[in-house]
Design a protein around this nucleic acid. Structure first.
Length: 276
DNA sequence: AGGGAAACCCGAACGC
DNA sequence: TGCGTTCGGGTTTCCC
């Protein structure tokens, strides 16, 4: 569930301060605790603890849905999957009800990885490209022009919805923002990527930019009980609005399953392509 | 290459 | 109230 805007909100708060917590930059790790071993994907838990202690947080960034914490020697990457969050606070009692890993800083604060459903993962590597290497372009990368996006779509004979969720095609988009962008661009989710006209693919890229930008501006979407603080959930056009009227035409929003994912759209604004 | 399904998890929502 | 069942979500893996 945390997608690009939620991850961006969390990462920028860690970097600049925010979400009622200070920046973690400059923090020197004096102790590391892992409460659920499978949280650490790489290296082993023993090596993770040994290696990370003594390192200092230099910067925090984001690539796709990964939070990238640059340390003095290595890089720690965090993927929240659907129920993860990073919490900053004082004290030596891990924060949150479901802390799976905690880093305690010399300066007296801690970074806790809260992760109810245990899907999230952490990596500690010398080179972050080891983890993010096969991600597709960032949606806001200026090199991803309308022309380039159209070219990429042309070489894929695949339904658009699953393609937008494919992180090797485009990094950062998840189920919410894929549905929202397709609706805004007035494109049916089952449309074959290579059949999109130039104008339509430009509209889709614009729509992706717009919904992601609005998500970031609203600090992400707070859904379920996990990630809190965002406001975008109050502005969904189609996501989880099955049966409710389309904001454009009033037609009840449809829900289908595509690639095992709930998919919401307006059958009038986003008419079926001939190929479906 | 693309599509479908299962696996990984567990809190919440639902049905009784 | 309390039980059992179903669902969803991001990603990988496996099979057709």
């Amino acid at each position: 569930m945390p997608e690009l805007p939620e991850v961006e909100t969390i990462a920028s708060a860690l970097r600049d301060g925010g979400r009622d917590a200070p920046s973690i930059i400059g923090g020197r790790i004096s102790r590391a605790e892992v409460f659920w071993d499978k949280t650490v994907e790489e290296p082993s838990v023993v090596d993770f603890k040994r290696r990370i202690v003594g390192q200092t947080v230099k910067d925090v960034g984001r690539r796709g849905k990964f939070i990238i914490i640059t340390l003095s020697e290595d890089t720690m990457l965090v993927h929240l999957r659907m129920s993860g969050d990073l919490l900053v606070g004082e004290g030596d009692i891990p924060l949150g009800k479901y802390s799976r890993l905690a880093l305690f800083m010399e300066q007296g604060f801690q970074l806790s990885f809260n992760n109810a459903r245990k899907f999230g993962r952490v990596w500690l590597v010398a080179d972050p490209a080891m983890v993010t290497g096969n991600l597709g372009p960032e949606p806001f990368d200026l090199r991803l022009s309308a022309l380039e996006f159209h070219r990429l779509l042309q070489e894929r004979k695949r339904q658009l919805k699953p393609l937008l969720l494919d992180q090797t095609f485009l990094a950062g988009v998840g189920n919410i923002y894929a549905d929202e962008a397709l609706n805004l661009a007035k494109i049916h989710p089952l449309t074959q990527a290579n059949t999109l006209a130039k104008k339509k693919s430009a509209a889709l890229l614009d729509a992706l930019h717009e919904v992601l930008q609005e998500g970031i501006r609203r600090n992400g979407a707070s859904i379920d009980w996990v990630y809190q603080g965002g406001d975008f959930q109050n502005h969904f056009r189609v996501y989880q609005r099955t049966g409710e009227p389309c904001l454009t035409c009033g037609t009840p929003i449809s829900r289908i399953v595509v690639g095992q994912r709930g998919t919401h759209f307006c059958r009038k604004c986003q008419p079926s392509p001939r190929s479906v």
